[in-house]
């Protein structure tokens, strides 16, 4: 039996918003430790990895490991039936073919219950190697969303350069080009870009903005985002989910043909 209780529906709603455009169907792998999901997008360009720790949830139990095959769009629709502040319980019996959702209103005077059919999903599980990155940049998640949105009006790809000056995002298109640079500046002045850069080697890599746009759907989960880069390996974009866990996205670089 698997059962997880979230004090508010909003975390699950936000997790689904952050994944449903990238992944249609995914196995939610539930164990005694918590909930994990790993899935590639349909083009196999990017990978999303979600982790929610059971001991940081309002309550959690999972006696036997269970993989719950979920259509992300269906789950998104069911979660829309909950108010953000509803206490939310998700539950599945061992060998169940449905997941049960219970939403309790703040005043406990309204309870809604939904059942969602589970699916058999054949998914490849990739081993993500431990990686020391040449550069890790922490910045405002809103700022990152803004830069991705702005540069998407210029071109399809972004060149990200990190050196000791800071981080620069650049895009080129048929009609022009644009760059946005953020200086590495430990000042805590109001209105400063407030980024921190952990750098061992300068890096310059190219990525498809289309996928970064999908990743920025996770911005409501966290005020900050961290970008980790090394030459010739996938970019890792991480949003913390409070103390409960994280959502990490990996994006393969564009390479010279």
């Amino acid at each position: 039996m698997f059962e997880a209780t979230f004090n508010q529906a909003s975390i699950l709603k936000q997790v689904l918003e952050a994944t449903k455009d990238l992944v249609n169907d995914a196995n939610w792998d539930c164990s005694a430790e918590g909930i994990a999901l790993q899935a590639m997008d349909s083009s196999h360009v990017s990978l999303v990895s979600l982790s929610l720790r059971g001991d940081e949830l309002a309550s959690y139990r999972c006696e036997n490991q269970i993989s719950l095959g979920i259509n992300m769009n269906t789950m998104t629709k069911i979660l829309k039936c909950a108010e953000n502040n509803d206490r939310t319980i998700i539950r599945a019996d061992d060998d169940a073919d449905v997941m049960v959702f219970v939403f309790e209103s703040e005043g406990r005077d309204k309870t809604s219950k939904y059942e969602m059919k589970l699916m058999d999903i054949d998914s490849e599980h990739l081993g993500i190697p431990e990686q020391e990155y040449s550069a890790t940049v922490q910045m405002s998640s809103k700022e990152f969303s803004r830069i991705v949105r702005d540069l998407s009006t210029i071109g399809e790809n972004v060149e990200i350069t990190v050196d000791k000056e800071g981080i620069t995002f650049g895009a080129k298109g048929e009609s022009g080009s644009g760059t946005v640079s953020l200086k590495s500046n430990p000042s805590v002045d109001e209105g400063s870009s407030n980024i921190t850069i952990d750098l061992t080697d300068s890096v310059k890599l190219n990525f498809a903005l289309r996928y970064l746009t999908f990743f920025t759907k996770a911005a409501p989960l966290s005020d900050n985002v961290s970008l980790s880069l090394s030459a010739d390996v996938p970019l890792m974009v991480e949003y913390a989910i409070g103390d409960v866990g994280f959502i990490r996205y990996y994006l393969a670089p564009k390479i010279d043909d």
């Binding site: 590639m40 196999h44 360009v45 990017s46 990978l47 490849e124 990739l126 081993g127 993500i128 190697p129 790809n157 190219n206 498809a208 390996v233 996938p234 990996y250 994006l251 393969a252 670089p253 564009k254 390479i255 010279d256 043909d257």
Partner: peptide, 13 residues
């Protein structure tokens, strides 16, 4: 010209 790499090329199956 740059081409898109696949994520599966980087992570072990």
């Amino acid at each position: 010209k740059k081409k898109q790499a696949s994520i599966a090329n980087f992570f072990k199956k």
